[in-house]
Amino acid sequence: MQISQVLQALGQFAAGFAPGSRSIRPLEIDLDGGSGPTPFEQAAIGKWKTEDGSILIDLRPDGQFHKAKPEAGATHRGRYAVDRSKLYFEGETGWVALGKLKRGTLSIGEKRFRKA
């Protein structure tokens, strides 16, 4: 077999792998999140408070949270994400925090929260 025939055969073979040679089908991604929250997200959703009641956190199903310190009259908002037992918080002013959910207790820094 001549070299030109080998190159021609390789060219035909490689053409089957070229990006334009296959039909393109649309991605099948459900952006509505119809499957509902994961078990970890379900465990995190709800109202949480410290033992002394000084801080209240409402973790909403839409990934938003509301934090209140009733005695100080302060409120904060932001968003959160759940990755298994870890929760990542980002406040509206840009602060970030890491929370851990273990055995019904949410720990954020030195603070411990229980479901209200």
Rank of each mutant, 00 (worst) to 15 (best):
M1E: 10
Q2H: 02
I3S: 07
S4K: 07
V6F: 03
A9H: 02
A9M: 01
L10D: 10
L10C: 09
G11C: 02
G11F: 00
A18C: 04
A18K: 10
P19R: 10
G20I: 11
G20C: 09
S21V: 05
R22H: 15
S23F: 10
I24D: 13
L27M: 11
E28I: 06
I29D: 00
L31D: 01
L31W: 06
L31T: 04
D32R: 14
G34M: 03
G34A: 01
G34I: 06
G34Y: 03
S35G: 13
S35P: 02
G36Q: 07
G36D: 05
E41G: 10
E41T: 11
A44E: 09
I45W: 01
G46F: 11
G46L: 10
K49T: 10
K49D: 07
L56F: 08
L56V: 09
I57W: 01
L59W: 02
P61A: 01
D62S: 03
D62I: 03
D62F: 01
D62Q: 06
G63L: 05
G63F: 00
G63K: 03
F65V: 04
H66R: 15
H66M: 12
K67A: 02
K67E: 04
A68F: 00
G73I: 03
G73P: 05
A74I: 15
H76A: 12
R77P: 05
R77C: 01
G78D: 08
Y80G: 03
A81V: 09
A81N: 12
V82N: 04
D83C: 01
D83P: 04
D83I: 09
R84I: 14
K86R: 15
Y88H: 13
F89Y: 14
E90W: 00
E90C: 04
G91M: 11
T93K: 03
W95K: 11
W95Y: 14
V96G: 11
V96W: 05
A97S: 14
L98C: 09
L101E: 07
L101H: 02
K102E: 15
R103A: 15
G104H: 14
S107V: 08
S107Y: 05
S107N: 02
I108Q: 03
G109M: 14
G109R: 13
G109Q: 11
E110P: 00
K111V: 14
R112D: 09
R112V: 01
F113A: 05
K115M: 04
A116R: 15
A116D: 15
